[in-house]
């Protein structure tokens, strides 16, 4: 056994030295390599998770806002349509009223013109009658230009006229 140890060069001091070397290396690496690097990796993972969370939140918020805006838009659109519909109704009513008013005006005007025409006609008839009586009187005067006084003449004419259609109609 001892010979094998010599042949392989096993010696205790070097063995212990190597163990010490390794332990020292382990400790130093732990503080200069593993700890900072692992801490950095954890920190980065945290940061990324944070970032992703924030992004997720932002996305959710954005979609929320989008929904809200869309709802508002839909509402506004509905309101607009309502307003337009109202306006159209009002317009139609106004139009209707205007039409009716116009109708009424037109009818009134027509009535008035008929009345006026009637009045005119009546006046014309009256004028005509007066003038005709005068002409008749004048004519009869010329014809009979004698004893008959003017009052008698007038009465006769009146009677004549009353018998005629013209007198009845007035």
């Amino acid at each position: 056994m001892g010979e094998a140890f010599t042949a392989l060069g096993i010696n205790l001091p070097q063995l212990i030295a190597q163990i010490a070397n390794f332990v020292v290396l382990l400790l130093i690496l732990r503080f200069t390599l593993y700890k900072p690097v692992l801490r950095m990796l954890d920190q980065r993972r945290e940061r990324i998770a944070e970032g992703l969370g924030a992004a997720e939140q932002a996305r959710a918020e954005a979609s929320d806002a989008q929904e809200r805006i869309e709802a508002q838009l839909a509402e506004a659109r509905g309101q607009g349509q309502e307003i337009v519909a109202n306006a159209q109704q009002v317009a139609a009513r106004i139009q209707d009223e205007a039409r009716q008013q116009a109708e009424r005006d037109r009818e009134a005007a027509a009535e008035r013109s008929v009345q006026e025409i009637q009045l005119e006609r009546d006046r014309a008839i009256a004028d005509l009658r007066a003038e005709f009586a005068e002409i008749t009187v004048t004519a009869a005067e010329r014809v009979i230009r004698q004893s008959l006084d003017e009052d008698a003449h007038q009465r006769i004419i009146e009677e004549t006229l009353a018998e005629s259609d013209l007198g009845e109609r007035s």
Binding site: L8, G9, I10, N11, Q14, L15, I16, Q18, I19, N21, F22, V23
Partner: peptide, 12 residues
């Protein structure tokens, strides 16, 4: 290539 060193590691 030295047994001492590998034994040291194995012991650890």
């Amino acid at each position: 290539s030295d047994v001492n060193n590998t034994i040291a590691l194995a012991l650890i």
